[in-house]
Amino acid sequence: MGRDMKYDERLDYDKPVETVLRMYTDRSYFERKYRDSGAWDVEVLEHEQNGKRFRIKCRFSMKSDAPLPDFAKKFIGESVSVVQQDAWDLEKLTGRIDTEIKGAPVKVFTEMQLKPSGQGCANHLVWNVSCGIPLIGGKLEKVLAEDLQAKSRTDYQVSLKILRDY
């Protein structure tokens, strides 16, 4: 088994926690973010919000930007179909993203913690990527982690633009 690959990321925002959380829990933010990040066939599958919790599950397709080695191309084509669920505990300011890449034998989840920072706030993310395929699993995890990091940077830049509207 490949050992799980973890990496941390910090997203800084120049608005307070309440404003960023309002964006992170707005259905239209997700639809706009995915479209503006180059995704297509964006569809909200589930969406719920009560006083303490928020959850949204979306399906979309996007181009795979990873420079895939030949062995990985059979799992991940030119484009990927993704189902992603974002969930937030609004009182603890913690969240989790579960990402399923159709046809890819990997599990991806991300834990989030939103905290005040300087004049604004920061979202601290811990990514977990694992692949259950012996021998090539570790290589596939590394390739996917690099692709996810690139997509996350794009996602962040798009989110910074969208945040101006909140």
Rank of each mutant, 00 (worst) to 15 (best):
E78A: 07
G118S: 02
A150I: 06
M62K: 12
P116F: 01
E18A: 13
L160C: 11
K115C: 00
G95Q: 03
K73W: 02
W88F: 07
D98M: 02
Y13G: 01
E48Y: 13
I56M: 10
K115V: 06
S61K: 14
T110V: 15
K6G: 00
Q49E: 15
F60C: 08
R55G: 09
E31S: 11
E141S: 15
A87E: 15
D98G: 01
G132K: 14
R22A: 15
P105V: 06
K139F: 11
F54I: 07
D147R: 05
L148W: 06
I162F: 07
P105A: 05
K107T: 11
A72R: 00
D65F: 08
R27Y: 03
S81L: 10
S130A: 14
P134A: 14
E48T: 11
I101H: 00
A122N: 00
D26P: 03
I162M: 14
P69F: 11
L144P: 10
L93K: 15
D65H: 13
E31C: 10
V158L: 04
M1A: 09
T94N: 05
L11N: 09
L163N: 10
P67G: 04
L148A: 10
S61W: 07
A87Q: 13
E146K: 12
Y7P: 02
I136M: 12
D36Q: 15
G38P: 14
F30E: 03
L68H: 06
D155P: 03
S28R: 12
K57Q: 14
K73T: 11
F60D: 07
V143F: 07
S79C: 00
T19P: 01
S79A: 10
K73A: 02
S37H: 11
K33L: 13
R27G: 06
R27P: 05
V42T: 09
D12C: 04
D155E: 15
T19N: 07
S130T: 15
T19I: 12
D70I: 04
K139Y: 11
R164L: 10
G95V: 00
Q149Y: 09
D155L: 04
M62I: 14
R35E: 15
R55P: 02
V82I: 15
R96L: 01
E31N: 13
R32T: 15
G77N: 05
Y7H: 08
G38H: 12
S61P: 03
A104V: 09
I76T: 03
E91R: 11
I162D: 07
